[in-house]
Structures are given as C-alpha cells and as structure tokens.
Write a protein that binds this DNA or RNA. Structure first.
Length: 901
DNA sequence: GAGGTCACG
DNA sequence: ACGTACGTGACCTCT
C-alpha cells in the first residue's frame, strides 16, 4: 500500500522499514516449492520463492528502508543457557544450504542490505532493529514464517507471517493478536513458555498445548503468575505445573527475542533506493528465472538491446528495412543472402494463428515484411523464395510457421535448421521454450520477450510498426546466431543424426498431416450429442431425487457436501481442498447409496458430451468439415508427441459408450477407408532389447502373449493353468515395470497388500533377472551422468536423482527407468512416420497419413490401395528400427475409425 | 490461474 | 517412515 502524507502541499512518502527473517523465509519457500534447478544443476526453488516475495513486497509496500537478517554461527547465546536448543531438528538439507550463497548474491542486485552476526539469530537482529526504529517513531513491517516474531508487534511494528507456503501472508497488529489469541504481543513469550515449541526443541510444560496455555494465560496473565497460582489448580494440572516450573521459566527465556544485539542501528544505513536493474537481470539469467525476466521487462524503452548485462554478448545495432508494396523491389535482390527468417503470428493454435509479419535476416540487414505485403500480388517472388526447397533458411518453430503460412496460401520449405527443435533436444524438460529465453540461456545477445512487446492475454496489442519491425528482425538475427551455437552443441552431445534425420524431417511430416486433417461426420456427432443429452437429463433427475434437492454435480465441492455431509457416506480420501470424489472413491461408495451409481454414470456422460461432442464440434472447420489437430513436438519430456486443438490422442476407446465417438471420424473421400496400425507391446519389446533379458527376448522372439507368459513365470504354472485373474495381475506387473515399479504403486493398482505386491515384484525379478539388472544399472548411470538416453540418443536430465528428499529422488529414479523405454518407443514410431511419408511419396500412393497416437498410425486409403497398404504399413513400422526382438504391428481397416478394431 | 477429474497411450 | 505408479490435454468450478 502506498501511503502519502500531505505536508505543506507537497506529498511526501512516509518512511517504512521492511525486515525479513532470511532463514525463515528461505526455508518456507524451499518446502513450499518444487525443487527447481538451473542448467548448472544448482537448486533454485528457495531463491525463487524468496525473489517473488521480495518483488511483491517492493511493489505493494513501497519500503523506503529494507534489510534481510540471517542466522550466523552454529552456536548462539541461547545454547549457553539451554544446550538442547534446536536439538533434534533434522539438519538443513544440502539442496537448501547451497541456495544461501545465491540468495546472498541476489540481495545486492535487489539493492537490499543484509546483516548477520556470529552468535545471533535473525530474529535477534530484527528485534534490535524494531526496537530502535520504534524508538525513533518509524513504521516497520517484519516478514517471517516464525510465530515467535509476534512478540515484536506494537502500534509501529506489524508482523507478516507466511501462510500455506509463501504465497500469502497474515498480517498482525496488536488488535489482531488480541482477536486471535486474546493476548498482548508481550504475552506471546509466555505462551511459548507454557506450550513449548517442538521445532526448536523448547519443552514448555509437557502435556500443555496451545489450548491449555491460552486458558491459563487468560486467567493468570504470565508464566510467573501461572506458577505462583499452581496451588489453586486441581489434580494433574497442578502436578504438571509444579514439576515443570523451571522448564516453563527457561522456555520463556529462550523464546524471548534478544533486542540488544551489538550492531549499527543507524536508520539511514538501511535506506532502500530500488533494484539494480542490470545486476538483477544478470542474476535472474544466471538463476534461469525466465518468467520473472519476462515479467520484469528489463529491456527498457531506450534501446531494444539494453537487456544484456555486463557479461552477456552485445549485438551490434541491426539495420532494419521496412518493406512495403512500393519498395519490395529492394528486397528481392537480397533474397539469396537471407540466412534466417522469423514468421510472427498471434495465437496459440498454429492453424488459426493470425500472421503479423515476417523478418528476413541477411548478412547486413533485417527486412521486415508486414502480413499485408506478404500476401500482396507483388510479393510473388518472395513467396516463390519461401517455397523454394533449395533456398536454405533457419527458423524458430518451422512447424508452426509452415502451418500459419499455409492457411494464408503461402508455402514454406527449405528449412534446414529449426532453433526451437534443437533447444528441445538439448533439454526436453525446458518448460518455457521461448526464443528470448534461449538467447539468454545459450549466450547470444538478448531479445525482448514477446510478452514485453505485445502484452499477453486480453492485453495483446501490436506496437507501432518501427518497434514491431525491430523486434521481429531482432528475432531473426538471434535465430541465425543460435543456429551456429546450437548446431555445435548438438554435435557435442552426438545428437546431429537424431536432429537432422528424425526430428527436423518429422516436423514437416507433421505439418502435412495436420493440414490434411481428418474428416468428422458432424451430423452423426450431433446425433450422438442429442442422445447423450437425453440420458444426462434422466441421470440428473435421478441424482436430485436421491439427494432431495438440486445442486451442481460438476462441482466437487458441492458433490462432496451432498455425499459426505448430507448423506453421511464414509469419507475415503481427502484432497488438498476437501473431500475427494474421484471415480476410485465413488466405486467404494457405490454399495452404500444408490445415488453413487448415478453420479458415476453422470460423470461418464458429461465427459463425453462436453469434451468429445461439444468440444470436438467447436474444432471442426466449417470450410473443410475436418478437424486439424496441432501436434506439439517439443512438449513431452520423453520425446513423445502431444496433440492439441483438439487433442486426438485421447479419443475414448476403453468403454463402449465412449468408443462410439470414433464412428464420427471418417475418410474425406467417398468410398475410401480408415486404416489403423498399432505396435503390439512396443514398450516391453523395447525393454527386452535394452535390458537384454534372455527370458523376455525369448518370449517376444516366439511371439508369445506376454502377459500370459509373465503369469506363467511369476506364478510358476503352465500356460493352461493361467486364469484370467493371474493374467490380469501379470499385466499390472508389466505396466509397473515399465513405469519404474514400486510395491506401493502395484498394491494400489491391484488392490492387494504392499507385501503381496512386493512378492510379485520379487518373483518377477527372479525370472527376469536381466530386467532387474537394467533397472539397477540405469539408476546408477543416471546418478553418475545426470541424465538418461534413448536408443537414438535422445537425452533427459534428472537433476533430482541425487536429491536428499526421498520423494523427489524416488520420482527421478522411476523416471530414469521409464524414460529410456517410453522415449525409445517414441523414437521408433517417429522413424516409422518419416519412413512412411517417404514410401507413400516414392510409390506415388494416394493414401494419406492422418494421425499418430503414440503407438499407432491412422491413414485414409482409397479402395484400390487397401491391399497394398495393409501390407506396407506394418512392413514399414516393423522395420523402422532393428532391435534384438522383432517388432510387430497389427493393422485393421473400416469405413470409420471405430471399425478399425 | 489453480485444482479436481477423467480421457488416452 | 517417507507416499507414487510413466507421459499427456480438456473441461469444469471457484477464487
């Protein structure tokens, strides 16, 4: 809040000091946030949380004075009085302690003073400064996660305590402490004296918790007074207080913040005059706080290239030439010199993105061509150049550019390097894959983030033409620079083949598939929707009848109230925010009340209606009657594709009601067929290959039913003795193996005890010893190298594999086991797609590849090619990559997607 | 924008 | 003891 005081007609900002307990806030942030880390492997989550808090405080509080205090020294004066102080506290995890140096480096960039003194804790420093500030009549805000700080509150001193994580704080003034505890700030130490504090190993009076302590204080006022009146109490309480009187006195003393730390308390020494822009930007870059870099917009208005810090490379000024219909003649002679281009288009969905303009970078200038000029008749030579496969250019996201241009009737080819794809291969877990971010990450001159130039969401605006042109040209320039840099890095990690022979060609294949789209029978889909509407209506009435009133079934909150409060059904599971009502819970509740079946049915129908009928209908292009999904090649950490607008990789199949949705996906030409081919057990075959397990390899070489074979081995029975239950268990074990098995996960999945699950796993490893060896080896390898790879050398870094936190480390270990399997399967089908595309072209077939769903490919096929495609597709898929076990692809066709089963 | 739920491999 | 299976995207509610 910004407080102004009228002072002789001039508004003068009131002085305000913020004091932060550095250790407390860093540790709250550390435990509240996932364990982020930067490319150098340094963990940064506590620093990140700290940073967001600083930014918020500066923005909202407008402090004039600022200091962060830290604990210093392992032994404080408190230990002299009480040697057990903070005993039993688990020591600071290394992932947190390594962040303190970063934090102490960050604060100067914020322009914030910091202070620590051997033998004292942060709260003593803060206590001392609040005392002197208050004596001078200054206003203070103390920020901490430690309730002890409340003793410092006064009419001048407010204490803000973090609540659930660090995103929110509760502010306390004397009135609020009175309201919440019925105590004065000074009595907070009495409270501690009585109840103790297990986290600091302060004993208090055993058996006295917050409730009792408050009751005693409300009656007697202080620890001393409580002890004096011990005789007035009865029974156990009397004994407890008498037996632990010394403990209570000492606890109170320990909890009292020392406010006479020998230090400089000069007010002016704490003055705060704002952040050090370039230093802060440099720190954010080092820490890889990309979202903050973008939000802060360090580029400023003076110069577009001002974002660099001292050590970042400077770009020489770029000559920008604005192209119009009148001067397009100037551009044409320069085309042979163009090295990189950038197509700027607005919108997340590449198929509907609106082209803003394009920049072309030659040796000595950047040319900016607005969209209106791109499509003008006079720009035909430019469009011919864009479509010229022998005119080589590099891009950022060639796939997206190709789609956006195609919908404006412009062809893009000749892309020989795509910076975005390269950056993805170098780190497929990169979550904000932006050109601006990659420029900073890989040490080429900065470029402003798009958000800083355009704004985001509803605030999206085109800046004036000169600014826009300069920005897009600068992007083209950075693409050229990153091309050289990333090519070299790909070479260093031996990914050139993966890049040039698989990912880059695939991006073109994907664009072609998506532009073709798949035809949707809209009338049939609407018909399905009408039928669903009737059923949904009926199911809703039934649910309301059981409940006795109407409510929003879609609201988990309202549904929870109905089930667990109104109907008193037994609570099975809680979520962060309340009762869990997911399908697993509802299944368990079904025997208790008839309403539950209705809800399960309603959920199923509602999902189909909203996502697969209404959602899909919205995505059908009126012009073509088709849906054009947008495959994303740089999202999944394992190398898989993902699909959006609409997602065609999660169309229902498991339940018959949903599976009917597939009937509306039809060929785009009359008389043609849909043909689908899927890999059989590709992940387990991959596992057989990379683990080299003899038993597993033999099973696939003999083309056995793998789940039955697993059941035979795990249960030690003959094939004829494997019943459906045994096969089901074996199947679950196989899934578990692929996911990086744990006994707990398997026990959940099979509803068996952990012990039984553990025995299954043990049995499995006894007969598939090569698999066990692989699982052990891959985790060790991940720990040693910091990453795992697929068969085609796709790489995924796993910094958390060495975490001291059990959960984080276990997660990383399961990922180490799973990623080579899932990722190699992704490599294989991607290879098949590139090869399939070539074969279709080479053999002049009219059949078209339409979709990929992780382990299957879907085509539309004219009648006269059905026979050849039934043979060709499995042949290409099975031959995509040679493994130690055969790959098997099964093919089916029909007149719609549903019939390909 | 986050959280819950559920669709797929 | 810790508390999860691996990888995604869309829709809905609620803050």
């Amino acid at each position: 809040m910004n407080v102004y005081v009228q002072n002789r007609g001039v508004s003068v900002e009131k002085e305000k000091l913020i004091l932060i307990d550095g250790n407390s806030i860093a540790s709250r942030a550390f435990y509240a946030l996932p364990l982020l880390s930067n490319a150098a492997g340094l963990h940064t989550n506590a620093v990140y949380g700290f940073t967001t808090m600083l930014l918020r405080l500066i923005e909202e509080e407008k402090p004039t004075h600022f200091l962060v205090a830290f604990d210093a020294g392992k032994v404080t004066f408190r230990h002299k009085d009480y040697s057990e102080y903070k005993g039993g506290r688990s020591k600071t995890p290394p992932e947190l302690s390594e962040q303190f140096p970063l934090l102490k480096e960050l604060l100067p960039a914020f322009g914030i003073r910091q202070f620590e003194l051997e033998g004292y804790e942060a709260d003593d420093i803060i206590g001392t400064l609040t005392r002197t500030a208050q004596e001078e009549g200054k206003e203070v805000l103390v920020v901490s996660g430690d309730k002890d700080m409340l003793q410092l509150v006064s009419d001048k001193v407010t204490v803000a305590l973090t609540r659930k994580g660090i995103s929110e704080v509760d502010r306390y003034d004397p009135a609020e402490i009175q309201e919440k505890y019925g105590l004065t700030p000074a009595q907070i130490i009495d409270l501690k004296g009585l109840m103790g504090d297990s986290s600091d190993n302060i004993p208090g009076i055993p058996g006295v918790g917050e409730k009792t302590a408050l009751k005693l204080l409300h009656e007697y006022g202080s620890v001393e007074s409580v002890l004096e009146h011990a005789d007035d109490m009865k029974g156990k309480m009397k004994e407890k207080i008498r037996d632990h009187a010394d403990s209570a006195r000492m606890s109170k003393e320990i909890a009292t913040i020392f406010r006479e730390v020998p230090m400089d308390t000069e007010w002016n020494a704490l003055a705060y005059s704002g952040v050090q822009g370039p230093e802060l930007a440099a720190m954010f870059r080092k820490l890889e706080f990309k979202s903050l870099l973008e939000k802060m917009d360090f580029s400023g208005a003076d110069s577009g290239d001002a974002a660099e810090d001292a050590d970042a490379p400077q770009a020489e000024p770029l000559v920008v030439r604005l192209i119009s219909e009148d001067n397009i003649g100037d551009l044409l002679p320069a085309l042979p010199d163009v090295r990189s281009i950038h197509v700027e288009a607005a919108g997340d969905n590449a198929h509907t993105a609106v082209i803003i303009g394009a920049a072309l970078r030659t040796g000595d200038a950047g040319y900016y061509v607005p969209a209106s000029v791109l499509t003008a008749p006079k720009a035909q030579p430019l469009r011919d150049w864009l479509a010229d496969g022998s005119a080589e250019k590099s891009t950022w996201d060639r796939h997206r550019a190709e789609l956006a241009l195609a919908w404006s009737g412009i062809t893009l080819s000749g892309v020989t390097f795509d910076v975005m794809l390269a950056a993805y291969l170098l780190d497929p877990t990169e979550t904000s894959l932006t050109l601006s971010g990659m420029a900073d990450k890989y040490g080429v001159p900065s470029v402003a983030p798009d958000e800083a130039v355009f704004g985001k969401g509803a605030k999206f605006r085109l800046p004036e033409t000169e600014v826009l042109a300069a920005h897009v040209c600068r992007k083209a320039d950075r693409i050229e620079r990153l091309h050289a840099e990333l090519h070299e890095r790909l070479q260093e990690v031996e990914m050139l083949q993966l890049y040039y022979e698989l990912e880059l060609p695939l991006s073109g294949v994907l664009a072609d598939m998506e532009l073709r789209g798949i035809k949707v029978d809209k009338a049939a889909l609407k018909q399905l929707g009408d039928e669903l509407a009737v059923q949904i209506d009926r199911t809703m009435s039934e649910i309301y009848r059981h409940a006795g009133f109407e409510f929003n079934i879609n609201s988990p909150k309202q549904l929870g109230e109905v089930l667990f409060e109104k109907l008193q059904l037994p609570v099975q599971k809680k979520t962060k925010t309340g009762y869990s009502t997911d399908a697993e819970v509802l299944e368990k509740l079904a025997p208790y009340h008839d309403i539950v079946k209705g809800i399960l049915h309603y959920r199923q129908l509602a999902k189909l209606q909203s996502t697969y009928v209404e959602g899909l209908l919205k995505e059908v292009r009126p012009e073509t009657g088709k849906v054009h999904t947008y495959y994303r090649q740089t999202i999944a950490a394992t190398g898989r594709l993902s699909s959006q607008y609409p997602n065609l990789q999660n169309i229902p199949i498991r339940l018959e009601e949903g599976r009917k949705i597939r009937k509306v996906f039809v060929p785009s030409e009359p008389g043609w067929s849909i043909l689908a081919a899927d890999y059989s057990q590709i992940e387990l075959r991959v596992l057989a290959h990379i683990s080299g397990d003899a038993n597993l390899k033999e099973a696939f070489t003999n083309n056995m039913d793998i789940h039955t074979k697993t059941a035979m081995d795990v249960f030690g029975v003959a094939e004829s003795e494997v019943d459906s239950n045994m096969r089901r268990s074996a199947k679950a074990v196989n899934f578990g193996i692929v996911y990086g098995i744990s006994d707990y996960g398997l026990s959940q999945n099979l509803s068996i005890t952990r012990k039984e699950a553990s025995q299954f796993i043990e049995q499995y490893f006894a007969v598939f010893q090569g698999v066990r060896q692989y699982m052990d080896d891959i985790v060790t390898e991940a720990r040693e190298k910091g990453y795992v790879t697929t068969l085609l050398n796709r790489r995924r870094y796993l910094p958390e594999i060495t975490a001291s936190n059990f959960n984080l480390r276990s997660f990383a270990e399961r990922t180490a086991m799973n990623t080579p399997i899932q990722g190699t399967a992704a490599d294989i089908i991607k290879l098949a797609m590139v090869q399939m595309d070539e074969r279709l072209k080479r053999e002049g077939l009219k059949s078209r590849m339409l979709l990929q769903v992780h382990d299957e490919l879907i085509f539309e096929v004219p009648p006269d090619e059905l026979e050849v495609m039934r043979r060709l597709v499995p042949e290409v898929m099975e031959g995509a990559l040679k493994l130690d076990v055969p790959l098997l692809a099964e093919v089916n066709d029909g007149f719609n997607w549903y019939e390909t089963k």
